[in-house]
Design a protein around this nucleic acid. Structure first.
Length: 197
DNA sequence: GTCCCGATTCCCT
DNA sequence: GGGAATCGGGACC
């Protein structure tokens, strides 16, 4: 992989409102040092104490502690008794805000992703969905709290120079029952690897 | 301690 | 479109 041409996103990129960070994460690359990499094509912002859909809405707990920590770290949580989901922590320490990565387009290490997701027949099913994404990339609870800026556990988010889409599609978030009025989901227009239309 | 349900996925109809 | 799988967090008694 031409890693030397990739720039790791700096801490300051994340130290902002997640609603500003989220659309700018589109077209960035989530990269593992085992060769797996994918282009981020769908994200959602979760906004702490002002957002009833956020895990952090009711304050800090053992489970969500990472979200209240420094920006640029990764919050990984377990849900539905079987799935992991991954977020980039944003904002300032104590805010409990971040961006859920919902879909990537596989761009490297696709054989490893296939091995991790043997049931996915089509490439577009490999990582189009928040739990599919973590399965394809091999992300589990062991990655909760890692510093993406420092490439901990070999995981990072980089730019290859591709800008975010000029007109990202915004709409309601998926799978939530409260806060549905907020258009805090963004995806690359007409991209086949987005989890839903 | 008990109970409900979730930032989901997959398979069946 | 509907339901099962599967279990821990968190609200509430």
């Amino acid at each position: 992989m031409p890693g030397h041409r990739w720039k790791v996103l700096p801490r300051k990129f994340y130290r902002r409102d997640p609603r500003a960070v989220a659309p700018e994460l589109l077209n960035k690359l989530l990269v593992r040092d085992d060769g797996r990499a994918g282009r981020i094509v769908e994200v959602e912002a979760y906004c702490g104490s002002e957002d009833p859909a956020a895990h952090t809405f009711r304050g800090k707990t053992a489970r969500n502690a990472t979200m209240f920590g420094p920006a640029g770290h990764m919050y990984v949580y377990f849900t539905y008794g079987m799935h992991w989901c991954a977020n980039a922590v944003c904002g300032e320490v104590g805010e409990g805000v971040g961006v859920l990565m919902r879909a990537i387009e596989p761009v490297a290490g696709i054989e490893l992703m296939r091995a991790a997701r043997p049931r996915a027949v089509r490439d577009r099913d490999l990582a189009s969905g928040p739990a599919r994404l973590t399965q394809a990339m091999g992300i589990t609870g062991e990655f909760d709290g890692i510093d993406l800026v420092r490439n901990e556990r070999g995981l990072r988010i980089v730019s290859d120079g591709t800008p975010p889409p000029v007109h990202a599609v915004a709409g309601p978030r998926i799978g939530i029952s409260r806060g549905i009025e907020h258009p805090w989901r963004w995806h690359v227009p007409a991209h086949p690897h987005v989890s839903r239309k």
